[in-house]
């Protein structure tokens, strides 16, 4: 049962990754560990015209994703030690004293949220900047966004403001985990599947 959520306006995210780095700064994360990742979705066909010009039907947009603190969290279910757990307020946290670094949550999460810290041998992930939230401040990523496309708040509030849409191509079916992630769809998203669009910046979002 999650009570807080993120909102991401994919129609206006530039992909600048200020959110990713402000998060890394807040959490002191070395390169290779990304609590927040920005996925670049691109699909297109290019054709040369009879005039010798170029035509394209490109669709491109970005998805900024941290941890969605799902209402039905696959990671919590999978964790053998209960290190990964839901707080009463719905935030999904990792107890570093219990984690054995088996990385099973990494497999179980359809969003790539849990990150393995090699040096410490345990998993880490976005905690909604719980300390900030308890102080009444937004998470570091949200207040960093130069385009103001990220929001944080109680789920009910986000739904009221933006509607209950929790997916955009190619995010997994939200019925799997009920993510507390609300999305404004990029206008091109409806063509993305037909264009066989895919995430093309793998080296930027995975090790």
């Amino acid at each position: 049962m999650s009570t807080f959520g993120f909102f991401c306006d994919t129609s206006a995210c530039s992909g600048c990754k200020t959110c990713q780095v402000s998060c890394k700064d807040k959490n002191d994360l070395d390169a290779g560990i990304r609590f927040r990742r920005v996925y670049e979705v691109v699909g297109a066909n290019w054709n040369k015209t009879d005039e010798g010009a170029w035509e394209h039907d490109i669709v491109a947009y970005n998805l900024s994703i941290g941890c969605n603190h799902c209402e039905n969290p696959a990671c919590v279910k999978a964790c053998p030690t209960k290190a990964m757990h839901a707080e009463l307020d719905g935030m999904i946290l990792i107890d570093p004293n219990k984690c054995i670094g088996c990385r099973y949550c990494e497999w179980a999460c359809p969003y790539g949220a849990p990150q393995y810290n090699k040096l410490k041998g345990i998993m880490q992930k976005c905690d909604f900047c719980r300390d900030y939230v308890l102080e009444g401040k937004p998470p570091a990523c949200v207040s960093s966004c130069p385009m103001r496309v990220l929001e944080f708040g109680p789920i009910s509030q986000l739904i009221e403001k933006h509607g209950d849409n929790r997916s955009v191509y190619p995010l997994p079916d939200p019925s799997i985990t009920r993510p507390a992630l609300f999305i404004r769809k990029h206008p091109g998203a409806k063509l993305a599947k037909k264009l066989n669009a895919s995430i093309i910046n793998r080296e930027e979002v995975k090790e």
Binding site: P80, T81, K82, A83, C99, I100, G101, C102, K120, I122
Partner: peptide, 11 residues
Amino acid sequence: HLGNPTNAPRS
């Protein structure tokens, strides 16, 4: 396989 085997019994 574990990153932190000392906690293994917790599994």
